[in-house]
Amino acid sequence: MDERILEAATDLFLKQGFGRTTLDKVSSQAGVGKSGLYGRYSSKESLFEAVVLRSIATMFEHMVDVSTIDEGRPRMQTAGEQLIDGMLHPRCVALMRITASEAVTFPHLAKIAYQASFDGSVRYVLKALGKEASEEQAEKTARRFVELVAQPLSFQAAFGIDPQDLRSRRSTITAEAILFLREAGYTTSS
C-alpha cells in the first residue's frame, strides 16, 4: 500500500505540482481508502516529504557503486559524473523545482530535501575516497566536492538551464573540481 501511495503521489506532484495535488486525488489514484492514506500521512506536506526522500534514495540506489571501480577509472571522476547524472534526472529536477517553489510556505520541507540530497552525495563521495584519507579530511573533501560538482549544476537545472547541456560538460566539470581540490590541498586520491 505504501508503494502505491508514493507512486500515485509522485505522479500527481510531478504532473500537477504541490498546490493542485490533494490527498483525495492521491487516495483515488492509488486505489486506497482515505483512512489508509491518512493513517500513514497526516498531511500533504508529510506525503510530499516522503515522496522527495524516496526519490533521493532511489537516485542513489541507481548509481554505480564507486567503491568497486578498478584502478583503471578514477573513482572520484566516476563519482562526480554519477552525481551530476543523478541530480539532472528529469524527476529530480522537477522535484527540486516543486520544493523550491514551496520553500517560503514550507521551509522545513526544502531544508529536509536539501539535507538528504547533500548528505547522500557526501556519503557517495566518501565511498569514492575509500580508506586513503583520514575520516575528518575525507569528509571535508567530500563536502567541498559536492559543493563544486553537484550543487551548481542542480541549481542551474532547477532554474531552467537545459540538463542535457549541463550533462554534456560533466566530465570536464568533475575533472576541474578534482584539480581545484588538489591545488587547494584537499585529498582527492581514489
Results as ranks from 00 to 15, higher is better:
residue 75 R to A: 10
residue 151 Q to F: 09
residue 40 R to L: 05
residue 142 A to L: 09
residue 42 S to C: 09
residue 148 L to P: 13
residue 87 M to H: 13
residue 3 E to W: 04
residue 190 S to A: 13
residue 123 R to V: 11
residue 146 V to E: 02
residue 82 Q to Y: 01
residue 89 H to N: 14
residue 106 F to H: 15
residue 173 I to S: 03
residue 26 V to F: 01
residue 119 D to Q: 10
residue 146 V to Y: 12
residue 70 D to S: 08
residue 165 D to G: 14
residue 128 A to T: 03
residue 6 L to W: 00
residue 55 S to C: 10
residue 174 T to E: 03
residue 159 F to K: 08
residue 82 Q to L: 03
residue 139 E to I: 00
residue 14 L to N: 04
residue 167 R to G: 10
residue 89 H to M: 09
residue 12 L to C: 04
residue 137 Q to M: 13
residue 186 Y to W: 04
residue 141 T to L: 02
residue 80 G to N: 06
residue 150 A to G: 09
residue 140 K to D: 11
residue 140 K to S: 15
residue 156 Q to G: 13
residue 107 P to A: 01
residue 166 L to S: 01
residue 131 K to V: 12
residue 29 Q to V: 12
residue 167 R to H: 11
residue 31 G to Y: 08
residue 152 P to D: 06
residue 39 G to E: 05
residue 124 Y to Q: 11
residue 5 I to W: 10
residue 66 V to C: 02
residue 100 A to R: 12
residue 5 I to L: 12
residue 175 A to F: 03
residue 133 A to I: 08
residue 60 F to Y: 11
residue 149 V to K: 02
residue 17 G to L: 00
residue 123 R to N: 14
residue 187 T to A: 13
residue 41 Y to P: 06
residue 186 Y to E: 08
residue 176 E to F: 05
residue 184 A to Q: 12
residue 144 R to T: 14
residue 31 G to K: 03
residue 150 A to K: 12
residue 188 T to Y: 00
residue 144 R to L: 09
residue 31 G to F: 05
residue 185 G to L: 00
residue 111 K to G: 05
residue 11 D to W: 13
residue 85 D to V: 15
residue 68 T to H: 11
residue 42 S to D: 08
residue 62 H to F: 03
residue 96 M to I: 06
residue 104 V to L: 15
residue 88 L to E: 13
residue 34 K to E: 03
residue 23 L to F: 02
residue 183 E to Q: 14
residue 44 K to Y: 06
residue 68 T to G: 11
residue 173 I to A: 07
residue 84 I to E: 00
residue 190 S to G: 13
residue 72 G to Q: 10
residue 185 G to A: 05
residue 123 R to K: 15
residue 90 P to W: 03
residue 170 R to Y: 03
residue 46 S to Y: 12
residue 184 A to S: 10
residue 72 G to S: 15
residue 65 D to G: 05
residue 88 L to D: 06
residue 89 H to A: 11
residue 168 S to I: 01
residue 184 A to H: 08
residue 4 R to N: 11
residue 107 P to G: 01
residue 147 E to F: 09
residue 71 E to N: 10
residue 43 S to E: 04
residue 144 R to V: 15
residue 11 D to C: 06
residue 176 E to K: 09
residue 169 R to A: 13
residue 151 Q to A: 10
residue 51 V to L: 07
residue 96 M to D: 14
residue 163 P to V: 06
residue 27 S to C: 01
residue 115 Q to D: 15
residue 67 S to H: 08
residue 139 E to H: 12
residue 62 H to D: 14
residue 73 R to E: 12
residue 156 Q to V: 03
residue 82 Q to G: 10
residue 16 Q to A: 15
residue 161 I to D: 11
residue 178 I to H: 02
